[in-house]
Amino acid sequence: MRGPHARDQQMSRDQRATPRNSRSVSPGSASRLAQVHRDIALSSLRRMLSTPGSSLMTTFVIAVSLLLPALLFGLNSNLNAVLREFQDNARITLYLEEGVTNSRGLEVSESLLTGTDISTAVYISADQALSDFSAAVGLENLTQELTTNPLPAAIVLTPNNAAPAAVAALAERLQAIPEVSLIQVDSVWLQRLEAISSLIDVIGRALMAIVVLGLFFIVGNTIKLAIENRKDEIRVIKLVGGTDIFIARPFLYTGLYFGLAGGMLACLLQAIVLIAFNFSLRELIQLYESSFELRGFDIGNALLLILLGAAIGWTAALLASLRHIRAINP
């Protein structure tokens, strides 16, 4: 047995004289902090892996919760992609009054191009419309059968700005041209799709809010159980002067890991769902001769999902651990 010698004595006096926080600014404290955190991070990971069944279960629940809104947002971004693809060829058809001559029709058609909001205007005379129609339906002699041409002349426009609101405004303006009898905007279904898309967006956001709340409860409860299991240990640490945040640290890592693992698993599940859908969609898409591919799985989205999971896990763990650790008294 050795007694505390003079140097120890000196050191203990120094230590008492200086507030404990002042030690944290000494050189090398960053590396020390990193070491402390690495130790805690590793031991938290080991603890999680020591109960693989329940850890996997919790991770899976988090992943599935994150997957639902992620899929909705994915669906929406696909819808938006469809919208963009079709918006480029939004068309407005102006049907002209019956008495308008071909030359007047051409004049109107050309005058439309003077503005900046229309990129192309093609005049289709009543005769051409009829011959196009009969060619399309395969009745070449239809023109001979009919005594009068039932079809009106038309002008087909491609607007510069294909946004539904801009197209609608343009159509309203064109209505004022006296030669025009009827306007058909073939982007109405696009507008409907856009309305559906914004509805899905709202539902997705609401679902996300519910899921975040749910995840707080799931992670919070997991942390609460972990704290319950280590109650005796926490009591001892409190007795020897451990602060609540010191005791909470390993639990914060646990929450972070659950969030990260849940986010990663959600990404994986999302990828699986997309691949499965793409497979069955391919045939349908080929019928439409479209080059469209299901999107929604890019690195940015995946990282966002993982980060979101991690942030929720850590925050939930912080709230839960501080609350439950405070309740434990030696």
Binding site: R32, Q35, V240, G242, F246
Partner: peptide
């Protein structure tokens, strides 16, 4: 080592 760990001592 627990009290030292709480104070953040180097290993």
């Amino acid at each position: 080592a627990l009290p030292l760990e709480i104070c953040g001592y180097h290993r």
